[in-house]
Simulated assay, not measured.
Amino acid sequence: MQKITPFLWFDNQAEEAINFYTSVFRNSSIGKVARYGEAGPGPAGSVMVAEFELEGMRFTALNGGPMFKFTEALSMVVDCKDQAEVDHFWYGLSEGGQPGQCGWLKDKFGLSWQVVPEALPRLLGDPDPARAGRVMQAMLQMTRIEVDKLEKAHAG
Rank of each mutant, 00 (worst) to 15 (best):
L93C: 09
P99W: 07
R131E: 10
D82G: 02
T71V: 13
P121V: 15
V47D: 04
K108F: 05
L123I: 13
N63H: 08
L111S: 01
C102G: 02
V78W: 06
K106W: 07
G96A: 06
L123T: 11
E53I: 13
F68E: 00
Q83D: 04
A73I: 13
G110V: 02
N63T: 08
K81T: 12
G125N: 15
L124K: 11
Q114T: 03
E55G: 11
V77I: 12
D107R: 04
Q101Y: 07
Y91H: 09
T60H: 10
V115P: 01
E85K: 07
G110M: 03
P99Y: 10
D87M: 01
A84D: 10
S94H: 05
R131C: 14
G110F: 02
M76V: 15
D128K: 08
T60C: 10
V78S: 00
R122P: 01
A119W: 04
L124N: 10
M67N: 14
C80D: 04
P66Y: 05
P117V: 11
P117M: 13
R58C: 02
L105S: 00
W113D: 00
A130D: 15
G96R: 08
M76Q: 12
G64P: 09
V78E: 02
R58I: 04
G100K: 03
G64H: 08
D82H: 07
F59W: 09
L105G: 00
A61Q: 03
W90Q: 04
F89V: 07
F89C: 01
G100D: 02
D82N: 15
L124Q: 11
Q101D: 09
H88E: 10
L120V: 10
E85C: 00
F59Y: 14
L111G: 01
A73G: 15
P99E: 14
D87S: 09
A130Y: 11
A73Y: 11
K108L: 03
H88M: 02
K69Q: 12
P121G: 10
F52S: 07
M48L: 14
D82K: 05
K106H: 09
C80T: 04
W90V: 07
E51D: 12
L105A: 03
W104I: 02
P121F: 14
L93V: 05
A50H: 01
F52P: 01
M76D: 01
C102T: 06
F70N: 04
L93S: 07
V49R: 03
G103Y: 06
M76G: 00
M57G: 00
L111Y: 08
M57Y: 08
M76I: 15
F89A: 06
Q101T: 10
E95V: 09
V115M: 05
F68A: 02
C80H: 03
K69R: 12
S75M: 07
G125R: 09
Q101C: 08
W90Y: 13
W104F: 14
E72F: 14
V116H: 06
L93Q: 00
N63L: 09
L124C: 08
P121M: 12
P66F: 06
G100N: 05
G96P: 06
A84C: 01
L120D: 01
D87W: 05
L124R: 11
F59L: 02
P129A: 13
G110N: 00
V86I: 02
G92H: 10
F59R: 01
F70V: 07
E55M: 10
E51L: 01
E118M: 12
G64S: 14
